[in-house]
């Protein structure tokens, strides 16, 4: 009888101990996650169902935020923003992949220097760097001065969608290069020798061995450029014309400037988050399918 009793007691004690250990281990992380991710998200969700007011939001339930999103106007905004993200991602991969590939071929000493080059922009505030770009591509900026000096036609880039694309690619390229470099560097060189030994010529070893093996890196790069691109509103603000808005800018304007429509801004954010999650899910599913093949 006594044995059974103490057994149960021991079991409860063990369970408590286990629970305490769990709290100690994941506690801090969990705490920060709740504080900085979960709570703000709940705020956004709650606000998205409230009424619009003079200072942005007022108590009371309303679906107006969501209904405004589905007006035709914003469908175009979302489409346009996704297109920009797509273009940015494609260009980042296009420039980033060869760059990362060259890095793996460079001598070891050179590599740390190249990584330093990639990381260096992070030491300066992004807004300042984008501002620097403006002075470069202004209609009478350094780029056009150079073109003129060379006797070529000047180009009008500032305050166009092209300038926004340029800013995005510039800002996000490092985030594309690093995962690509990581996955390229992991490839065992003997796999390329094996491919060559088995008769693969010229571009074939790259096509059949390197590219498939770096797909995880390509996926990581895509996610690291596509998602931030939807949110980097200040690049659109600083480089764009300011008339034809992107989704990040629309959301920003609901909170920070003229519009003062918090429920609408929140609803737009939620829809953007859901859309992104759905697309990424779909994307990684294609990815894992390709891995199997």
């Amino acid at each position: 009888m006594r044995g059974k009793f103490s057994n149960a007691g021991e079991r409860i004690l063990a369970a408590i101990r286990k629970f305490l250990a769990l709290i100690v281990m994941v506690g801090p992380t969990g705490f920060w996650l709740v504080l900085f991710v979960f709570v703000p998200l709940v705020f956004v969700v709650v606000i998205s169902f409230m009424q619009r007011g003079d200072y942005g939001v007022e108590a009371g339930f309303s679906l107006q935020g969501y209904l405004s999103v589905f007006s035709a106007l914003y469908g175009k905004t979302i489409g346009k923003s996704l297109l920009l993200a797509l273009e940015t991602t494609a260009l980042c991969l296009l420039f980033g992949y060869p760059f990362a590939y060259c890095m793996t071929k460079a001598p070891k000493k050179m590599v740390s220097f190249l990584v330093l080059l990639i990381m260096m922009p992070f030491w300066v505030n992004s807004v300042i760097r984008i501002y620097a770009w403006r002075t470069l591509i202004n209609d009478n900026g350094y780029l056009n001065m150079l073109l003129e000096a060379l006797g070529l036609n000047t180009i009008h880039l500032m305050r166009t969608n092209g300038a926004i694309l340029l800013g995005m690619v510039y800002e996000l390229l490092p985030f594309a290069v690093l995962p690509l470099y990581n996955s390229l560097e992991k490839i065992d060189p003997s796999l390329l020798e094996a491919a060559s030994d088995l008769g693969a010529k010229r571009h074939r070893p790259f096509l059949r061995v390197v590219l498939p093996l770096t797909m995880p890196g390509v996926f990581a790069s895509t996610i690291q450029t596509f998602i931030p691109c939807l949110g980097l509103y200040y690049i659109c603000n600083m480089m764009g014309g300011g008339t034809d808005l992107y989704i990040g800018q629309v959301i920003e304007r609901q909170f920070l400037s003229e519009a003062h429509n918090w429920p609408f801004g929140s609803a737009l954010s939620i829809i953007l988050i859901v859309l992104t999650i759905v697309m990424m899910k779909q994307y990684t599913r294609i990815g894992s399918l390709e891995d199997m093949a």
Binding site: L191, L198, L213
Partner: peptide, 12 residues
């Protein structure tokens, strides 16, 4: 043709 010391099979 070579059989490599570490096999060098294509992992994918």
């Amino acid at each position: 043709n070579t059989v490599f010391q570490n096999y060098a099979l294509f992992p994918h």
